[in-house]
Design a binder for these strands. Structure first.
Lengths: 218, 218
DNA sequence: CATGCAATGATTGTCAACAATCAAACTCTT
DNA sequence: AAGAGTTTGATTGTTGACAATCATTGCATG
């Protein structure tokens, strides 16, 4: 019947809800409400929730309940530090190994970003952006980097969803991605790492800046 | 009463058991046996197990059960790739921030290694080794790097426990750690990163080599 | 009027019984 | 004797009920 455990399915649904802010940061997760909503009993739901606790997306207060984490500026910086480490390593691996299929996919993701930019569609631009970073880590072939990245992306999306498609300097954004792929294609490991780090710094800067404008929604 | 959830406690006990090979790779986890052993019901135990599934220490086969992961050579390489990414980032942060307390702790860990080496105590050497890497990541102050690292260390210990204190070239091992701290103290970010990566490469080499001698125990 | 205390309601944490699924042993057939 | 089908035992997956804990509300008191 299932080719996947129910805990795994529910965990993914919870992850999506957190990402899209259906479950808002700081909100308490009602077990009865959620189990009813997902059509399962409390048992499997609690198992799924424990997965997210391990991921760090939920915080547990014993005998109180589980709450969606709240991200302050220090957290956001930490997310980008971790992403730089993970994606830097992934990009480096691809640059060293010279995988043509990876480059093709990365180019495709960049093209999708450019197209969304021309169309002025911030939602599609965002999707293409995340697709790029997903492809990057997947193509590295490292299962552990991929697992770590998954959680980091959820946290990143949590932040960006709050801004609702308010993209700062989208032209620069696209350009940074293209330059990363260029460095990878050239097989220049040092340049690749440098450009990934630069991209993270800039992305962080744009995010913090956008938040200052939006004032307070974290 | 509890200042920590039971799932969290059981998860840690499971982690230790996997690390020490009390639960051997490939072994199926019997829910009834483990719940009796830990003195809890199956409910909380299953919650704890789901945490380890998320970590990647257990693999789930729906309607079959949960099994301890088995690490082949590709996995071991992947572990060291991920560790290089995480610890490289951590060391870099410390080198940039120049935290005196961190240097003191790292030196202390190095001294403990040297002492264990002189005494010819491989168990203590191993402990000091792991302590060094833990301190390194903790001192970076990155909660996300720390979380990722925790799992990677369990997997590393899984491998090393199999070799039972067979340390290859322990003198080089200690020296590599000292050189990393030297680079951090000098505030040389590039050198720091290079030496962390070198250390991981060498550690991986020694591990694979030791395994070839031991023949097969993975 | 503020403060401390007790009762109350709701929520989480835990458990044991039930249903579903799978692997292995056994039997029957060819 | 070999193989397919069936039965059986054991394990996981799920559920609903019970116990424990905490926050809130109302009340009595200084």
């Amino acid at each position: 019947m299932h080719r996947e455990s129910t805990a795994s399915v529910i965990a993914r649904q919870l992850r999506t809800a957190i990402m899209e802010r259906t479950l808002q940061p700081g909100a308490q997760l009602s077990e009865t409400a959620l189990s009813a909503q997902f059509g399962v009993s409390r048992g499997p739901l609690r198992e799924a929730m424990q997965r997210l606790v391990q991921e760090g997306l939920l915080r547990s207060e014993p005998n109180r309940g589980l709450f969606v984490i709240e991200l302050d500026e220090a957290d956001i910086r930490d997310i980008y530090v971790a992403r730089a480490a993970v994606e830097g390593a992934a990009a480096t691996m691809i640059a060293k190994a010279r995988i043509p299929a990876a480059l093709r996919e990365l180019r495709a993701a960049c093209d999708a970003m450019s197209k969304s930019l021309e169309l002025g569609d911030p939602a599609k631009l965002s999707d293409a952006d995340f697709r790029f970073h997903d492809v990057l880590v997947q193509c590295s072939g490292s299962r552990r980097l991929a697992r770590m990245h998954q959680t980091l992306i959820v946290e990143t999306r949590m932040c960006l969803t709050a801004l609702e498609g308010t993209y700062q300097q989208p032209l620069e954004l696209v350009e940074e991605h293209i330059q990363i792929v260029d460095a990878i294609e050239a097989g220049d490991v040092k340049l690749t790492l440098k450009r990934v780090e630069l991209h993270m710094d800039e992305a962080l800067r744009r995010l913090i800046h956008a938040e200052d404008n939006d004032e307070g929604y974290v």
